[in-house]
Design a protein around this nucleic acid. Sequence first.
DNA 1: CGGAATTTCGCGCAAAACATGCGCGCATCA
DNA 2: TGATGCGCGCATGTTTTGCGCGAAATTCCG
Lengths: 151, 151
Amino acid sequence: MLDDTDKKLLAALQKNAHLTSHQLGEMLNLSPSQAGRRRQRLEAEGYIQGYSARLDPDRLGLHVQGFVQVQLGTHGPDHARSFARLVQTRPEITSAWTMTGEADYLLRVYCADLPALNRLIHEVLLPHPAVARVHSQIVMDQIKRDAPLPT
Amino acid sequence: MLDDTDKKLLAALQKNAHLTSHQLGEMLNLSPSQAGRRRQRLEAEGYIQGYSARLDPDRLGLHVQGFVQVQLGTHGPDHARSFARLVQTRPEITSAWTMTGEADYLLRVYCADLPALNRLIHEVLLPHPAVARVHSQIVMDQIKRDAPLPT
DNA sequence: CGGAATTTCGCGCAAAACATGCGCGCATCA
DNA sequence: TGATGCGCGCATGTTTTGCGCGAAATTCCG
């Protein structure tokens, strides 16, 4: 189980994974060795899955973010699998979920510009035999980004 | 500008930010000092915004993920600001975007269970004076998770 | 209910691993 | 031929981590 110190530690590491054991210890009123040991424990127990670098999409030339809702036509398992494979191969699609409701899939996409998003939809998604309809929404502004998970 | 080695480095660090300069050097056919220097450069030039820990939502008891589309009623700037502030205060809402299309906001939410999501919608979102309609979609499965951004 | 044993949680130290600043060599190009 | 960019290895300072130890809490048994 997680005590209060563990929760603070997890929150801190979500904001900045490069905190040293020493800095962590200062925040938590713990010695560096104890702070490090707690982190090890949380990693071993599976609370922490890993560490990733946060990139700046705009700096990389990815000026358009969007969400694409995809509705499949014939709901056969083969078609769904084939579509799932397509999703895996496209780098513009960074995350994908199957959902309840009308839309079967929700895709999070990053594209260089609107023409690129348009090409993704009309030349990649719509031509796939399983796809019946897509509905795309474009991100205008991100008002909250990757806040720490509640604990 | 980014050369091919930089792109590989960014892709590797998105998967695992705890790679040492030595490991990075092996992948890129570079010495540890050079790999580290490249990373420093990419950080300084703003390609890398920071590093975060990836937590396991399920391990934390957050068994329900969803997306909530929110449509505001009166589109006055005061109402919108007030709603944006509400979004910031709720820990279940980890990300939020303003969007094109019918829905004004898209919220990404993590809840312990369905009743908790229900409470969030009916006791937090809908009572807000600016909110006209909400439409929630629940994640059944994540088929692609945080793939590296295309470079 | 009381006391001893065991477990839990903390500390600091020392060794190993790691990052980083510095000086140097090599290739490219004007 | 000189300047510049890009790479290397080495040395130093920092960070992590394994280990031994002690205090507090908890459990177990008489």
